[in-house]
Nucleic acid binder design. Structure first.
Lengths: 179, 179
DNA sequence: TAGGAGGTGAACATCCGTGTACCGTTGTGA
DNA sequence: TCACAACGGTACACGGATGTTCACCTCCTA
């Protein structure tokens, strides 16, 4: 049941990053000793959760054809479905201090950044840097996950919300452009 | 020098929410004892930092004329300038567990939500709920603060980035609308 | 049925953050 | 010059989280 354990740890630590290992074990319905046996130290657990999330993203990313122009839509839609497991990765404090994790995260970003850069020739605006657009995408995902978590947003609505907002913005279509 | 102390505490706690009071005191160039004298407990310090940020927001919000249609632009521009002090407020984990703080945060959101709702008749799209638009604004601010902090974004560029992205999106103007 | 693997709870030592008390130093104003 | 307040530092007590060990249980299999 290692999978379920990691999922539980994800949600517990995401809700309260200072939660004790005892809390995590209890939430997972597992003895604290067992938890220690599988993850000798707290850092090990956190790293495992993060790597699990990265594996999840990899398994999704390899299904996306980054050569297609609508790859972003595809990717976003799939990422929204992953929910809190990925949110952990981008939100848990201090994760970037682990060199190995930082490398994996950068490796995860690269194909998306390349895609964005390529699309800036056609579908995406050129007056914003690629990294800014990437972070805007992530921010949209954050909002969706959080809203779903609070029960404000139906999971099936989420992809449309994110895509619409990120691509077209919140200004009404007919409104005069801002200066 | 209580002001400087709170600012330092803000940035230290924002970078690492689990930082010890000793770390905060050291960063502020102050004895841990002195810190304890001013803020008897850790919760007191966190609450003070949050309330300081809220005061800052209040002092900005009262300069904005929420009856004008471009109030959002004005507000965003001013909020971007506040930087990490406000970021703390929206990012520090567990802050919403304090009833008094939660009330103040809601009170802070309300005029903006009302403004958004009003503008949804004209400048803002009606197919997204007001709270979603509000969170999109906040997300844009996050991105700007973070990018400034990492030195990727010039502070003077930030308002334009946020406003452009949030209002018009990242799709190039000439591109066909997404379906 | 014996034995091993995996899980559990209890007990223990340890570390670290926290809060408090006490004392010495500095600086400021009466 | 004295009194007093503010500050810094040391030391100590306390509690909670952590990591380790050990004994016991259960299930599965040879």
């Amino acid at each position: 049941m290692s999978v379920h354990l990691l999922q539980t740890a994800t949600s517990v630590l995401l809700k309260d990053p200072t939660a004790s290992l005892g809390d995590v074990a209890k939430a997972a319905g597992v003895g604290r000793t067992t938890l220690h046996k599988r993850f000798p130290t707290r850092a090990d657990l956190v790293r495992a959760v993060a790597n699990d999330a990265l594996d999840l993203i990899d398994s999704v990313a390899c299904q996306v054809d980054f050569d297609r122009d609508d790859a972003i839509e595809d990717l976003i839609t799939r990422l929204v479905a992953l929910g809190p497991r990925v949110e952990f990765l981008l939100r848990f404090p201090g994760l970037e201090r682990d060199a190995e994790l930082r490398t994996r995260i950068e490796a995860m970003d690269r194909p998306v950044l390349d895609l964005i850069t390529r699309l800036q020739g056609t579908r995406l605006r050129r007056d914003l840097p690629a990294w800014w657009i990437l972070h805007t995408l992530y921010a949209g995902l954050f909002n969706a996950w959080e809203a779903i978590n609070y029960g404000r947003l139906a999971p099936l609505d989420a992809p449309r919300f994110v895509l619409t907002t990120v691509f077209e913005g919140v200004a009404s279509a007919g409104a005069a452009q801002r200066t």
